[in-house]
Design a protein around this nucleic acid. Structure first.
Lengths: 138, 138
DNA sequence: TTGCGTGCAAAGGTTTTGCATGGCA
DNA sequence: TGCCATGCAAAACCTTTGCACGCAA
């Protein structure tokens, strides 16, 4: 089916994203970075591989605003990302994990009172971070 | 600058989205629908027009998951969408406005405690609605 | 009349697909 | 050995741009 084989290329892509937990990359960037590292992986393979990793729940796909291409980021299991929300600054692209008692109750509230099961691995809240909010007067 | 002229095409696009407040459409769909109505508007113009409308704050751009193309939806002023969050079902595409006292405090909490200004017109939470959650056993 | 808006055609970019080959299990 | 995965090239899409013409103000 999917992800049956554990190929060299899959390990390389997964490994690269795992080493850069706090960053998001496009398929083109992933392919480029691996090439620079001396372990090139074809762009087509990167597209197919991150797709698989996304379905496996290991990688988050961000189709937001900053880049016109989709970006991918490894989901750190230790951070328990499925339990909290995420923010992304529209200006500088900073990605923030919202671990916080108050907000942890939001998912539950929405589930109980609004009968909707939020998927935190697919949801990102956009806005402006502290620094950018200050610097952008408009 | 932008939106200086009130052209026939702009009125048609704005009118169509206004008549379908609860739905989202891609540029292609908008162009197609207007053609079927006997009032065709070129696809290029649709792209440029919704872009303008988005900047004017009249239309919400949804770059989410359901469609590979960006979708656009008229922002109903009476609903005061900037004050609440939105949900979109990954399965059926239903779009839900979350007007609720508890959740209205979320933006404020995030602003005060996490120093981040959420833009509700650009943020959508994804997950599964009640019906789809039941029907999808997997 | 001025200059923004329109729409065709073409360009630009991203993502997907076809297909022969390669490599994991 | 049997399949799935890879990667090149090409196709398929989506979106943007150039440019001449149209139209709102």
């Amino acid at each position: 089916m999917n992800g049956t084989y554990n190929t060299r290329q899959k390990k390389l892509i997964e490994g690269f994203l795992k080493e850069n937990l706090s960053s998001q990359y496009t398929c083109d960037e992933i392919s480029e970075m691996l090439k620079q590292k001396g372990t090139p992986v074809g762009k087509t393979t990167v597209y197919r591989c991150v797709e698989r990793l996304t379905h496996e729940g290991k990688v988050r796909k961000i189709v937001g605003v900053a880049s016109k291409s989709a970006q991918y980021q490894y989901i750190d299991e230790e951070m328990n990302c499925s339990g909290h929300m995420h923010l992304k600054c529209l200006n500088c692209g900073e990605f923030i994990h919202l671990g916080c008692d108050f907000l942890d109750g939001v998912n539950e509230h929405i589930y109980i009172h609004h009968r909707f099961k939020i998927d935190n691995s697919k949801s990102v809240l956009y806005g402006l971070c502290d620094k950018c909010s200050d610097s952008i007067q408009e």
